[in-house]
Computed example of a mutant assay.
Amino acid sequence: MSTLPALLSPDPDAPFPPVDRALRQPDGLLAVGGDLTPARLLNAYRHGIFPWYSQGQPILWWSPDPRTMFATDGVRLGSKFRRGLRRSTWTVRADTAFAQVIRACAEIPRPGQRGTWITPEMRAAYERMHELGHAHSFEVFEGDRLVGGIYGMAAGRMFFGESMFSAVSGGSKVALAALAFHLRRWGFPLIDAQVENDHLLSLGAKLWPRPRFLAAVAELTAQPGIVGAWTDRIGDWPATALADVNRP
């Protein structure tokens, strides 16, 4: 196996190298360079690859092993949190505040993290994908205040989560659980969460070997997707509805 990642062609339609060539250290680094055009991004996600880099770095493309995954019927909320949801006045919407969600994900402080990988270039690229109907956000509101959200990419019947945030405790949990609930209704069985952390695992994420993940991606991205805004599909959806979803 090479000790250096592949250098991508400047042609946005050029294929990525085979994922099994990804490095073990750092885990999953596959390629360097290229761009964030819609064609390149769609090609990447359909092959289980995503961009992740910091300001001042070239674009880095990753496919780690194992992969962190949620089943859309497997997001777990604790019993105390559910009891609080029964009194919640929060409302969930889709694709009404994509730019605000991605900006909040970029700017909110996170323990142990300096700066952000959601660079201005990344924000512009995903906002363009949102305009084209491929990137989506689920937003949690308290009145007119945005208190949490999640965004990511959809390809076929596969959803690839990118980032989520909470401005108020529990906002990101509600966004993730609402996303999973509605994706399941629409025939999306999985959410890619990319790289593990304790918080994701506590919410029900599982670690999948990369071959299993890639097989699922190939199958699901080949199915007809739901391109375009998802706003009217859920309307103003009450967070209280999550209190009894996927109860143990």
Rank of each mutant, 00 (worst) to 15 (best):
R123N: 04
T119W: 08
T119E: 08
A94H: 05
V217N: 04
P209D: 14
E121Y: 05
I150K: 05
E196C: 02
E142F: 00
H134G: 01
V101C: 08
E219N: 02
F98G: 00
L203H: 01
R212L: 11
A177K: 03
S137W: 07
R145D: 15
L190W: 14
G161S: 05
F181A: 11
M158T: 02
E107A: 15
G133C: 12
G187Y: 11
L146P: 04
E196P: 05
S169I: 06
S163Y: 06
F98N: 01
E127I: 09
S163G: 12
A154N: 06
S166G: 13
T119S: 13
V168H: 12
P111R: 14
E142S: 14
A180V: 05
I118H: 07
V174E: 08
L201G: 00
A193G: 13
N197M: 10
M153A: 00
F181D: 01
H136K: 10
I150H: 01
A177E: 02
P211Q: 12
A155L: 10
R110L: 12
G204T: 04
A175V: 06
R185D: 14
Q194A: 07
D198C: 08
A125K: 12
A205F: 05
H182V: 07
L176P: 02
T221D: 09
L200Y: 01
Q194E: 11
F141E: 00
V195Q: 14
I102E: 04
V140F: 04
D198F: 06
